[in-house]
Amino acid sequence: MPLTDLDRSLYEWQLDVPGFGESGQEKLRSSTALISRAGGLGGPLAFSLAAAGIGKLVIAHAGDLRLDDLNRQILMRHDDVGKPRAESLAATLRAFNPQVEVEVIPENITEANAAELVAKADIVFGAAPLFEERFLMNRECVRQGKPLIDCAMFSLEGQILPIVPGQTPCLACLYPEIPEHWKRRFPVIGAVSALAANIGAMEGIKLLAGFGEVSLNRMIYFDTATMRFQQIQVQRNPDCAVCQHVSL
């Protein structure tokens, strides 16, 4: 889909990015991204994808906004405490960039909706706080051959794992079962989740627009306590229950 004059004006500064240009912008504008939860990670992620001019965002996020969400869930507004998160985040994104189509599903990822939601997207971003949801998205992305950018954080650390089925390890290659010790509540400063989110957003933008070097087969790890960033080589598990039979 060719860019309009409005597109050229709106995205003028990023069209100058080497390797991106009008071609990259067109690809981004033709793309749909699914984000599982728009909390501390998914919110900034959705914001950055909207700013970059993704064509459509599908966001799955249930529940009502709580006061203690607001240290990190930057799409929400103080006045919306007690109201559905889905309404708050949709209003913010639509006001921020009306060019982007926003579909908000007031549900979290479940066995019942995972396949249908993943089918809507060209790329999926995992930002849910529970491994059950992340594993469902991982399984569906592998089944449907969709790339998944899994973003996670804990305290001052973040991990971003770009997954391309058949080409890279999937989440189940690294973690073959639900980690027993992960708790729903975790320590978080909003800036750390936003940092992980924006690294994930950038990996997704590069994948969709076809420029730069995506961190395939490498997990991006950072620790803001020391500002140590590193890429860790990861590998497929030949016995993975989810992706062992998938090849390019």
Binding site: G40, L41, A128, P129, L130, F131, R134, A152, M153, F154, S155, E157, Q159, L174, Y175, P179, H181, W182, F186, V188, S193, M219, Y221, I232, Q233, V234, Q235, N237
Partner: peptide, 25 residues
């Protein structure tokens, strides 16, 4: 990342070991 049975690994020539537990924040 090291694959295979973690019970059988040795530190032969290894300079750094990083132990990571899964996170999903």
């Amino acid at each position: 990342q090291v694959s295979g049975d973690k019970e059988d690994l040795t530190l032969d020539g290894v300079k750094s070991v990083m132990l990571m537990t899964p996170i999903a924040g």
